[in-house]
Design a protein around this nucleic acid. Structure first.
Lengths: 192, 192
DNA sequence: TAAGATAGAGAACGATGGTTCTCAACGCAA
DNA sequence: TTGCGTTGAGAACCATCGTTCTCTATCTTA
């Protein structure tokens, strides 16, 4: 038998793929069991309810997102380039064949009104992302107000790419971000 | 008895409120019947399936959105101000107490993978909005590339405001839009 | 007024889902 | 080897949902 840690991993990974691909409510726990290869009894021993599993999946995705973002921004040096690398990270993601938008946005729309835990998980992930962007903005020496603007661009790119079914939004958002960054830094370069 | 037109209206309005507030799959047809005050038989005579009703609700929302947007941009003269008025329109929307994000984004996330009709309705609405912004951008004399950038800002503001639970994103997106518009128009003002 | 069509209320039906339970198989300690 | 505890497979259970059907009451029209 596999240990609890590996079982959790398999269950969460399987549930993530299914929930993300079809939506949470469209996936029964039996489908999770089949995909994970773990008995229902075991699943319920590790996750007391489907809602708990959903929250675990979101936390798992949040960690993966953080790691991917850190890796993407680690490839360049300057804070300005790191900010733009965020949009390159999105571009790479949008072309993946199973891309279906942001799981947090999707889950929030589907379950946010029903599950406070899901709503909180989405809120935390977005706040974390905004904090990450804000740190890069500070490092770049740009005014704080730039951070939410860039975060909004990233969010919009995700939904736009998902619904349109094309990755164009990543480049468009990147171009807009470059313009906003330049404008934010310009006054500092040429003070009155 | 009420006529078909009024019945359709009541059903769609009731379903819209319920679907938007709780998510589509969380609302049973019986809840729609109760809220609409129209018998299930009548509902199914007018909408052969729940999926058809969902699509009708989305089309209804699309018309309301178009009208609201047209009204909001009609209050100002210049194309540039009309573009900014889009974000004021969002700001007014975000402070409504039942605001829960964009119904098209939410529906797409919940049902896009299951219902091609729902996916198409979302895609059409977003394309229509992008077209509207593109027309304003053209009228403002700015390069075409500005339009998707502003549209992405608007999308991002909607999801950000919904998940954060605050209307701040409208102002932030508006500020970003003003910067992008200015940057897009600047080269035209000072040609080489 | 009487017959017939129609509509509404809600029961009924079949499917599905989340969750729990049964039971047989297995591993392990004495 | 013999119990005992644990596990997995899946049946079972109960609720809910989309959809249809039944039955009664109402309205129309001649």
């Amino acid at each position: 038998m596999i240990d609890d840690w590996a079982a959790r991993e398999q269950i969460v990974t399987a549930a993530d793929r299914l929930f993300y691909g079809r939506g949470v409510q469209a996936v029964g726990m039996d489908a999770v069991r089949a995909q994970a290869g773990v008995s229902l009894k075991r699943i319920y021993a590790l996750f007391p309810s489907k809602d708990d599993l959903v929250v675990a999946v979101l936390h798992h995705r949040s960690r993966r997102w953080d790691a991917g973002l850190a890796a993407a921004t680690a490839t360049v040096e300057s804070p300005r380039d790191k900010l733009l690398a965020v949009f390159d990270f999105l571009a790479d993601w949008f072309v993946e064949e199973d891309f279906r938008g942001c799981a947090f946005i999707n889950s929030f729309g589907e379950l946010g009104a029903l599950s406070p835990q899901v709503a909180a998980a989405a809120r935390e992930q977005k706040a974390s992302f905004q904090g990450y962007v804000a740190a890069l903005v500070r490092a770049a020496g740009a005014p704080e107000s730039l951070a939410p603007q860039l975060a909004i661009l990233a969010e919009g790119a995700q939904t736009t790419a998902a619904i349109a079914g094309t990755p164009d939004a990543a480049r468009q958002a990147r171009d807009a971000a470059a313009t906003l960054i330049e404008a934010a830094l310009a006054p500092a370069r040429t003070p009155a």
